[in-house]
Every structure is written in C-alpha cells, then in structure tokens.
Amino acid sequence: MKKLFFLLSFVTILSTSCKDDDTQSEQWDDSPRTEVPSDLTNAIWQVGSISFGNFWDDQGQYVGAGHDGAIRYYFKGDGTYEMYSYISVRSYNCLTQSYTYMKGTVEVNGDKITFHPVEGKYKGADNCASSNNFERPIKEDEKSKFAKTYQWEVAEGNDGETHLYMLEDGLAAEPENILIYDNEM
C-alpha cells in the first residue's frame, strides 16, 4: 500500500511537471554532465521513513502516521537525473504534504557525484487549511540548495540487498550522515 501511495504521488508530480522552453533548453545545454555508470542506472533509488506515532479519530478509526517521507533518485546513462521528495505531517485529521520534483544533470567522477538542477517544482497540500495549498516552479535562486556533491558507492548491505550509499561532501562519515537508498526496481 505504501509503495502504491508513493507511486501515485510521483505520477501526479510527473504528469504536471515543468514544460521545456527556450530558456530551459539553454540551461540543459549549459549544465555539466558525464556519463553515469551502469550500477547507478536502471534503478530507482529510494530512502524513506514513517513515524512510530499514529493517530486515531474519536471513533477509534485509524487516521494515519504522524509523519512520513521519502526521497527517490532515477539516474539515466546520458548524465541526467530526476529526484522526487515527499514529506507529510499529520495532526489528527489534518494532513500537510510537501512534494519536490527536480530534474537536472550529474557529473560522476570516481566516487564523487555532483548534482546540477535545471528545473523542478514544489507542491504543498493541506487538507485543513486550503490557503496553504500551492504549486509552483522552483526559482533560480532555490536550485543552489540542491546543487551538491556526494561521495557514493553501490554495494551489498548486511541484508544481502544492493544499496546506494551517499555522503554529502564536508560531512563526517558518521552513520547519521550516510543516506542509504534501496533499489526499488
């Protein structure tokens, strides 16, 4: 059920994704990229969590988790990527959701991968305060927070499954700083 929810969320974002225009076409042409190694492609890399706290209504019916979220990456061999992020927070029957969709190019040099966002969008949804609902393209000055370099490795984990491990440049290699993505394909 959880996978279905994320799939539907991401399909919604994809179906309303940004349209190319001349400016975006130039940005794509100017954005640095390298070929992406095959161990990163042909996979959907996802990390997610769900809270231990849950909510029930006054009739004893389950309403949902206190919060949950996921980040997904899809890399293509031509040096492009797509990133999806979903975060939700619940307070009883009120649910606030945040979606981020980003497309861009990547440079892979050895064990380093650098993300160069080109286009994307934000969407917010709040079922208790519709004035908080919005959908808009990501602004030029906001792209920089997604332009990051990570150390990466695809390896077998203790669970026997293949994972993508990413550590943002400048952070200590402590367990809480290492993002571990599962291959969902």
Rank of each mutant, 00 (worst) to 15 (best):
Phe52Thr: 13
Glu107Gln: 15
Lys139Cys: 07
Ser25Trp: 04
Glu153Trp: 06
Gly170Ile: 08
Gly60Thr: 01
Ser38Glu: 14
Phe134Gly: 05
Glu168Asn: 07
Phe55Lys: 00
Glu26Ile: 11
Ala173Lys: 13
Pro32Cys: 00
Lys143Leu: 15
Cys94Glu: 14
Phe115Arg: 02
Ala129Lys: 11
His163Glu: 04
Asp68Ser: 08
Leu164Phe: 05
Tyr92Phe: 13
Ile113Gly: 01
Glu176Ile: 07
Ala125Glu: 14
Thr23Gln: 14
Arg72Trp: 08
Lys3Gln: 12
Glu107Ser: 15
Ser130Trp: 10
Gly48His: 08
Asn133Lys: 06
Pro175Ala: 01
Glu35Arg: 11
Thr23Lys: 15
Gly60Pro: 01
Asp159Leu: 10
Ser49Gln: 03
Gln46Asn: 03
Thr12Lys: 13
Val118Ser: 02
Phe6His: 08
Glu161Gly: 05
Thr12Met: 11
Gln46Ala: 03
Glu82Leu: 11
Asp20Gln: 08
Gln61Ala: 13
Met83Trp: 04
Val106His: 05
Ile87Lys: 06
Lys123Val: 05
Ser49Lys: 07
Asp21Cys: 03
Thr162Leu: 10
Phe115Gly: 05
Ser25Ala: 14
Asp126Leu: 00
Glu35Lys: 03
Glu142Ala: 02
Asp22Thr: 09
Ala65His: 11
Lys123Glu: 12
Asp29Gly: 04
Trp45Leu: 00
Lys19Ser: 12
Phe134Lys: 09
Lys76Gln: 14
Lys3Ser: 11
Phe10Trp: 04
Ile87Glu: 12
Glu35His: 05
Asn127Cys: 07
Gly110Asn: 13
Thr96Arg: 13
Cys128His: 06
Gly124Arg: 13
Tyr92His: 11
Phe134Leu: 12
Lys139Arg: 14
Val89Phe: 07
Asp182Phe: 03
Gly69Val: 03
Val47Gly: 04
Ser130Ala: 12
Pro137Asp: 14
Pro117Tyr: 07
Glu107Pro: 06
Lys121Tyr: 06
Cys128Trp: 06
Ala125Gly: 07
Val11Phe: 10
Gly60Met: 01
Tyr92Pro: 01
Gln24Met: 09
Glu176Asn: 09
Glu107Lys: 14
Gly66Trp: 01
Arg72Met: 09
Asn93Trp: 05
Arg136Thr: 11
Thr23Glu: 15
Asn183Gln: 08
Glu156Ile: 10
Ser38His: 07
Leu14Pro: 01
Asp182His: 11
Asp182Arg: 09
Lys148Asn: 15
Leu164Gly: 01
Met185Lys: 13
Tyr165His: 02
Tyr150Lys: 05
Tyr81Ala: 07
Thr16Cys: 01
Asp21Ser: 03
Val106Leu: 06
Ile138Ala: 03
Tyr86Val: 11
Ala125Tyr: 15
Lys19Met: 05
Gly110Gln: 07
Cys94Pro: 00
Glu168Gln: 15
Phe146Ala: 14
Tyr84Glu: 08
Pro137Ile: 06
Gly69Pro: 08
Val47Ile: 09
Tyr92Gln: 14
Ile138Ser: 02
His67Gln: 09
Arg72Phe: 06
Leu167Arg: 00
Asp68Ala: 06
Met166Glu: 02
Thr114Asp: 07
Leu4Thr: 14
Tyr150Trp: 09
Trp152Val: 04
Met83Ala: 13
Glu107Leu: 08
Ile113Cys: 03
Tyr181Arg: 04
Glu156Tyr: 05
Arg33Asp: 00
Gln97Glu: 15
Gly60Tyr: 06
Glu156Leu: 10
Ala70Ile: 03
Asn132Cys: 03
Leu4Arg: 12
Ala125Gln: 13
Arg72His: 06
Gln97Asn: 03
